[in-house]
Design a protein around this nucleic acid. Structure first.
Lengths: 109, 109
DNA sequence: TTGTTTCATTGCAATATTACGATTAATAAT
DNA sequence: ATTATTAATCGTAATATTGCAATGAAACAA
């Protein structure tokens, strides 16, 4: 065990969970917030902004990139990371659809 | 290591991450969707609905309850679980504020 | 009382995640 | 060419998560 039984859930449920999982760490929230604030960014910026070691930041960036929420462009010795607008929008759509469910009848029990 | 350095992040960042983490498993998404569908529910329902063992479901319910997203009321030998409207609304507020950020200038690099 | 039902808890094995030092790879600067 | 800078990768230790069998607790039914 220790591994998720994804096969027993719907694609939608798995997709929501995957997006949520990447948001499940404050460092990745901080990275995204910083990327939104200064619309362009390099990894070094984040290392001084967030007090985590460079390999740790790099690893978090990798996960965000894997989900497609950010993209990185090599610029000399630096890598410029920024939000991937298309996938950010898609993620929002998936998430909103789930979150916007509302309670039909207030308290049931 | 293996533990998150929450102390270096803001309360807001930690709160978003905590809510996201609980959504980071398809079983918990499935539980919430089911609770929304049939506005009242017992654990046994979920065990037959979701093909996971009873202790596993119970554990997922516990996490959702800990975050305050659901509440359980004992009814004889059964426990009636349902969405906690107040905290669900609060979670939505926190999440929307984060998600609704939008890209100011399309592609930066 | 003796079972039965329903759900929580415990204990454990398997796997995943987090964090970072050390190293590597690639470009830039001297 | 040599050195500096930047960021990825590797390896590893510590901790967290997932899942379930076994067991326990509490209310109900006979």
């Amino acid at each position: 065990m220790g591994l998720v039984k994804t096969e027993i859930f719907s694609d939608e449920q798995n997709e929501i969970a995957l997006f949520a999982k990447v948001f499940g760490h404050p460092a990745r929230i901080a990275i995204l917030q910083h990327l939104f604030k200064i619309n362009t960014c390099v990894c070094g910026d984040l290392v001084s902004e967030i007090r985590l070691a460079q390999p740790t930041i790099s690893q978090h960036l990798k996960e965000l990139k894997y989900l497609g929420l950010i993209k990185g462009t090599v610029e000399g010795t630096r890598v410029c990371y920024c939000i991937n607008p298309e996938n950010w929008a898609r993620m929002k759509h998936v998430f909103f659809q789930f979150l916007e469910q509302d309670i039909v009848d207030a308290d049931c029990c």
